[in-house]
Amino acid sequence: MAAEDVQAGAVPETGGQQAEEVPEVEPNVLSIVHNAVPLQSSLNNCVQAVPQLDGTNYSEWKEHLEFYLGILELDQVLNGSALAEPASDVSKEVLEEYNRWKKFDSLCLKFLRLTTAPNIKSSISETGCNTASKYMEIIKERFQTTDKAVAGRLMFELITAKYNESVTTMQQHVLHMTNLAAKLGKLGMKVEDPFLAQFIINSLHDKFDTFHLHYNTVKEIWSVNELTNKRFRSKKNQER
C-alpha cells in the first residue's frame, strides 16, 4: 500500500472481501514450527496462546484451538473417528496404530481441558467424556447456542451504529464496523461488502447529506474501500 493511502485513512485493499483474521502466533510457538521441538514440551506454549473458553467466546476459542492443534498435529483425532480398543490377537501394526492414536487423543483431550475455564471443566464428567472428540461434542452442544445471542448483539450494533466525529475518526468508525461484520462472518452470518458499505453510509449523520445524495445518484454499488476513498476525496475537495 502506498504511503498516501495510509495517510488518507483508506481501508487496505482486500479484493472486495473482508480480510480473514488469522490468530497471532506467539514467537515461542513459531519455534515449534521451524524447529524439531518435542510435542509434549511444545504443548504448554500453544495452550498459553489459546484464549480460555469462558462460555461467551466459543467461536474465538474454537478458531484458535483448531489453529494450534493443527500446528501440533493433534487435530487428526478430532477430524477422524475414534479407534476402538483392538483385540488381543491383532497384528503388531494395528496395535501400534491404536497406541499412537490413544497417545494423541490423550494429549488433545488435555489440551482441550487446559484451555477451558475451571467452572466449565469441572461440570464435564471425566468418566463419561474420555476422548477428545466426545469432549468437543459436549462443548459444542453447550455453547454453540450462545453464538446466536452474540450474533444478535453484533447485528444490532452494526445496524444502529452512528458516527460521532467528536469521539472517533472516520477511519476508526469504518474499521469498527468492518470488525463487527468480520465477527458476524465467523458466526456464520456473512455481511457482504456492498451491504456493509450501505450500513456505514446509514451510520453517517446529517452533515453528510451531500455525500448521501451523491451515493444514491450513482449507478454502481460501492465497496467499503471505494466508499472510504471517495469520502476522503470528497472531504479534500470541501477543504479547498
Rank of each mutant, 00 (worst) to 15 (best):
E66G: 01
M1E: 06
R113N: 05
I159L: 10
I159G: 01
E93S: 13
S31W: 07
K140N: 11
K207T: 14
V150S: 12
V33D: 05
H212W: 07
N35C: 12
R240N: 13
A87Y: 09
D193K: 06
Q144N: 10
A8Y: 01
V25A: 06
G70P: 05
Q171K: 15
G152M: 12
E93F: 08
D5L: 10
H212P: 01
K110E: 02
E73N: 15
N216H: 10
V218H: 04
V77E: 02
E126H: 08
L158E: 02
K110R: 08
F195Y: 13
L83S: 05
N44A: 14
K183P: 07
F111P: 07
Y163I: 01
M170H: 02
R240Y: 05
S88D: 12
V90M: 12
M177H: 04
N35L: 14
V167F: 02
T210V: 06
G9Y: 00
F232P: 00
R153D: 10
L196R: 03
K148R: 14
A182R: 15
S88N: 09
C129E: 03
V218A: 03
Q76G: 11
E126L: 13
I32F: 15
M136R: 13
A182D: 05
S133G: 01
L107Q: 09
V29T: 08
V6I: 10
Y215C: 12
P38C: 09
E4N: 05
L43F: 10
G15Q: 03
S42Q: 05
D147Q: 13
L53E: 06
K235G: 03
A149E: 11
D75W: 08
T115F: 07
N164P: 01
R100V: 07
L180R: 05
E141F: 11
A10I: 06
Q76M: 11
M136C: 09
K230M: 08
E21K: 11
T145E: 12
K121E: 14
D54A: 00
K207V: 12
E192S: 11
L204Q: 07
V218R: 15
A84R: 09
T210I: 03
A82P: 04
L175F: 00
P194T: 04
E13I: 00
A161H: 07
L158A: 10
A197F: 06
D89P: 08
V22K: 14
V6G: 00
G55H: 03
G128N: 13
N28K: 12
K102A: 15
A19L: 13
Q76A: 14
T131F: 03
E239R: 11
C129G: 00
N130S: 15
F195R: 11
P12K: 06
H205R: 12
K190I: 10
N164H: 13
F67R: 09
R153T: 10
P51L: 13
S91W: 04
R142N: 12
T115Q: 05
Q7C: 07
M170A: 05
N28F: 07
G128T: 06
R240W: 03
